[in-house]
């Protein structure tokens, strides 16, 4: 916990400095006739972020926050494995949307999550894994006319669209 607070503050301080330099690509001072320049608002606020990050670091050295006094790990070991597995599964799902589309990635995600993390029966896993994409398709694509990314599975959907539209 103690180390995590310092690392977060340092990362955020660096990020603030980057934001400041990025904002400064536009005028940050007074532009005649149009008031403060386009970069001024984000620039001064990024400076505010930087000051706050430094302030957090100072308070860390003074041990002024509960985190900076805590010797507990940032994540308990059992939670660590679980949380990172879930995050990895999410990244894998969103990443695979680019290739196999929402309708390929969502069922796989359900199978992984319910069967392997939740240890549910194959029946309930498959019921949800197969019904969720159907509901999603009917709601978003048919009712809302929002096309979800399909990747390589695009062509499989042509007959479906012909049927509904």
């Amino acid at each position: 916990m103690r180390r995590a607070e310092l690392i977060m503050a340092i990362v955020m301080a660096i990020f603030s400095a980057y934001l400041m330099s990025k904002s400064a690509e536009l005028p940050i001072g007074w532009v005649k006739g149009s008031g403060p320049g386009g970069g001024a608002f984000p620039f001064w606020l990024s400076l505010g972020m930087l000051i706050c990050s430094l302030w957090i670091i100072v308070r860390w050295f003074m041990r002024a926050t509960p985190q900076s006094r805590s010797s507990h790990p940032f994540l308990e070991s059992h939670a660590l494995a679980l949380v990172f597995m879930v995050i990895a599964a999410l990244v894998a799902m969103v990443g695979s949307i680019h290739f196999i589309g929402v309708y390929g990635a969502v069922p796989l995600f359900f199978i992984f999550y319910m069967r392997f993390l939740g240890r549910h029966s194959w029946t309930s896993t498959l019921t949800l894994a197969l019904s969720t994409p159907v509901v999603t398709f009917l709601f978003f694509e048919i009712l809302l006319h929002i096309t979800l990314p399909k990747g390589a599975t695009e062509e499989l959907f042509y007959p479906l669209f012909d049927f509904f539209m």
């Binding site: 969103v94 929402v102 359900f110 999550y113 319910m114 939740g118 549910h120 949800l128 999603t136 979800l148």
Partner: peptide, 20 residues
């Protein structure tokens, strides 16, 4: 209801809702 059923449903809603 076990959370391992709710969580994936909510995650999928978030992904699709974030895209829409």
């Amino acid at each position: 209801l076990p959370f391992t059923i709710l969580a994936p449903i909510i995650f999928v809603l978030c992904v699709v809702g974030g895209y829409a």
